[in-house]
């Protein structure tokens, strides 16, 4: 057995080995299920929910270096429970996985860390907020999530960033209850899409001072996909107008889309299945897979009709379960920058 297979199995249920992300659609025995009545409240929902099977703290940032080049940075901590609840020491059923990446037009650096819960190697503290795995961490320097530092390191890269929120936390879906399929699969989901970012990205050629925008996603569930869904395409778009658009499409027997229009002041407007239109325009071949790295994204009800294009189409995350994640540029009815995540290819 290699660790990759093991991890794939841990994070995405055993029978899903060959189908990758579709494993998220399998049964979740004994785990808590997302509840539409649940009222998201802070600071406790910044912390972990060990009774749910899977959870993530997901930061992406689109940055510009003092060398004039564009960069993307990702910092993610996943939590996966092999059974609900916590345990003592090594007996903990919680497994943590960190992914970090730096993307430029030419380069894409990825690192991964794994840890089990219960021993202090990885975890989340809700007040003052801190998530960490090994020496990677996302740490609040003030109250809530307003001001944070984020750092990570791989074999050939490192970054150290400061984040400052200029807007409020945004609840996705129905007050944080985000539906993922016609059958009712759902997750709890909120975001902080208003970070101003500054710091240093260190690449093999040396350190680069960077500034830009960041977007934090928080999501937890036990069964976010339906049986027939094989993966998703997720977009976070920051328009130059100050508005934001979160949208995703879940690929199943039929495409299931969902979107949230976020006004510059942070007021969210959720849109259910069908309002968002996603059309892949151009595919590139990465490791034998056809991955669409150019899309037409349309939300007619808001007058959005844009083309998004990857800064680096080869932004493949070759980790325990591989997926595509990278910065994109936006052109069309709106302009701006954003991040794209594609799984299940």
């Amino acid at each position: 057995m290699n660790v990759r297979v093991l991890l794939l199995a841990i994070f995405w249920a055993n029978q899903a080995l060959t189908q990758g992300f579709s494993g998220l659609g399998t049964e979740a025995e004994g785990f808590a299920m997302p509840d539409p009545q649940h009222v998201i409240s802070f600071p406790q929902d910044h912390g972990a929910h060990p009774d749910f099977r899977i959870e993530w703290w997901y930061l992406t940032a689109t940055l510009e270096g003092d060398d004039g080049a564009q960069y993307g940075v990702q910092w993610t901590l996943f939590r996966s429970a092999m059974r609900p609840g916590e345990g003592e020491g090594w007996q903990s059923p919680q497994v943590w996985m960190g992914h970090a990446a730096v993307t430029s037009a030419e380069e894409h650096h990825v690192a991964e860390r794994l840890a089990r819960g219960g021993i202090g190697q990885a975890g989340v503290i809700s007040t003052p907020f801190e998530t960490f795995i090994d020496d990677w961490q996302m740490l609040a320097t003030g109250a809530g999530l307003e001001d944070m530092t984020v750092r990570a390191r791989g074999a050939d890269f490192a970054y150290d960033l400061a984040l400052h929120a200029t807007g409020p936390i945004v609840l996705q879906g129905d007050r944080g209850y985000s539906v993922k399929s016609p059958g009712g699969q759902a997750s709890h989901y909120f975001s902080q899409p208003f970070y101003e970012v500054s710091g240093v990205v260190t690449l093999p050629d040396g350190p680069v001072a960077v500034t830009g925008q960041g977007w934090l996603d928080r999501e937890w569930s036990s069964q976010p996909l339906a049986e027939d869904q094989s993966g998703w395409d997720w977009f976070s778009l920051s328009f130059d107008t100050g508005a934001r658009l979160m949208g995703f499409g879940l690929r199943g027997a039929a495409l299931f889309t969902s979107a949230t229009w976020i006004a510059p002041d942070g007021t969210p407007t959720p849109y259910g299945d069908g309002a968002l239109q996603l059309t892949p325009l151009n595919h590139v071949e990465i490791e034998g897979r056809e991955v669409p790295t150019e899309w037409r994204v349309a939300l007619p009800v808001r007058g959005v009709d844009v083309t998004v294009e990857a800064l680096n189409p080869q932004a493949w995350m070759g980790v325990s379960f591989p997926y595509w994640e990278g910065p994109i540029s936006i052109a069309g009815s709106h302009t701006g920058r954003g991040y794209l995540e594609m799984t299940g290819y």
Partner: peptide
């Protein structure tokens, strides 16, 4: 480090770790 058969996981991760 862990044993593996050709391309196949010999380990049920949940059973191995918990």
């Amino acid at each position: 480090i862990l044993p593996q058969a050709a391309g196949e996981s010999l380990v049920d991760p949940t059973a191995f770790l918990t």
